[in-house]
Design a binder for these strands. Structure first.
Lengths: 221, 221
DNA sequence: CGAATAGTGTCTATCAGACACTATGGC
DNA sequence: GCCATAGTGTCTGATAGACACTATTCG
């Protein structure tokens, strides 16, 4: 019984939700796009395998949210034989560049709209895993402060709103959003610094607060 | 690499949330309580293994909600060697009796207050798995119509409320609860029949509606 | 009748969404 | 001044929770 760890790594680039995909260099599915991943080592904890693969593909090892997604083990999912994969969801800030110098022939950020449109061209059952990961991410933005995981350590309310808009694919009222997130105690921690990167009035910079459940949630429409 | 399926099977008995536990007959952890489970067969789908184990322990094969919980694979979790387990959450109506004639030395419904109090006496990492299952069940009652999975095919609003009260461990206002669940379109489907089992005014009997997400949710205080 | 449970109506505080308005920067 | 973005105030409709009240059965 072979055990692997596969990763749904999401980030925001140019206001678009993107997923990290690799082009497979070997059979099966050589030349096809796949989620990054690999075998779990014999005495390695499952989450350590996920962190290791994440580091090998992206070069990053800190500041990334990582949570277990689900486990997939349909008997025919790998033509080489029985392989069970534990899938993980990782959320990375937008500034991360994937490294091509690893075992990934070419790791690239692909907009999820493109990836899901070409879902049938993904290797193994990775289209299903990707869909589950997207659903999990979209749902968790509502009731957890997870959106901040897509932002750099210090960020503005507008940056945070851009995350919600990219993940949900819908625009939100900037004024109501601002009021909502700043008046949820523990969600954001003000730094006193400002950023005027966008040409308008300078915006306050925040860091992530210690909250882990949003109550009331940020509602999606 | 050994792969197993373990089950957190919950039900309501006498207004108490109970979990199905078995007494282990063999080493390791012989004589200790454990979650029911067993090995996944070489060419068996993961969910089929979960259904099979569930059937072997409880005799039931239909009308049970079953969903994947998480996968646990810490290197030292099984003293016999590397074993990864996919844990499942099952919710059963209250009338189910466990069968003792299977490979389980003795499967019993244990109130979760007792099971969590004696958490350290559970085999393997089953205390952690049980805690995760309980947390999942409690959270899902809020935003899904899952509570009906604890009820027989036809049930009253009071029975449904008893599920929420047992799982959450808090009492709810019967009048507001009634208004809430009956005015959420698609949650409950009226049958036109009544039940007068409780001595007061006869109550309407409902079946589960087709809804799969409660919006707005049933809030937990 | 009283006791018990089922079910409805109503009040109030709160909140999401819409949107007018003010604040503060660059050009 | 003009434009863009940041941030606040206010109105309205919806809703959760508290609880008075009516309805229907049993004994």
């Amino acid at each position: 019984m072979a055990l692997t760890a596969d990763l749904v790594v999401l980030t925001i680039r140019e206001h678009q939700l993107c997923v990290l995909l690799v082009e497979r260099g070997i059979e099966p599915f050589a030349g096809r796009w796949a989620l990054p991943g690999g075998f779990v080592l014999p005495s390695e904890d499952l989450i350590d395998a996920a962190y290791r693969e994440l580091h090998e593909e992206t070069g990053i090892s800190r500041g990334v949210h990582l949570e277990q997604l689900a486990t997939y083990g349909a008997p025919g999912r790998d033509p080489r034989g029985r392989t069970v994969t534990v899938a993980w969801l990782a959320l990375a800030p937008g500034l991360v560049e994937p490294v091509a110098g690893s075992d990934a022939a070419g790791a690239t950020w692909v907009p999820v709209v493109d990836a899901t449109a070409k879902a049938t061209s993904l290797a193994f059952d990775h289209a299903e895993i990707l869909a589950d990961g997207l659903e999990r991410a979209r749902a968790k933005l509502e009731y957890s402060p997870l959106a901040a995981a897509f932002c750099p350590p210090k960020f503005t309310v507008a940056q945070l709103r851009a995350v919600y808009e990219a993940v949900w694919g819908q625009s939100l009222d900037p004024r109501n959003f601002h009021r909502k997130v700043t008046r949820t105690p523990g969600f954001l921690h003000p730094t006193g610094q400002v950023s005027n990167a966008d040409g308008g009035r300078p915006a306050q910079l925040f860091t992530r607060g210690g909250l882990d459940v949003l109550n009331p949630p940020i509602t999606r429409h």
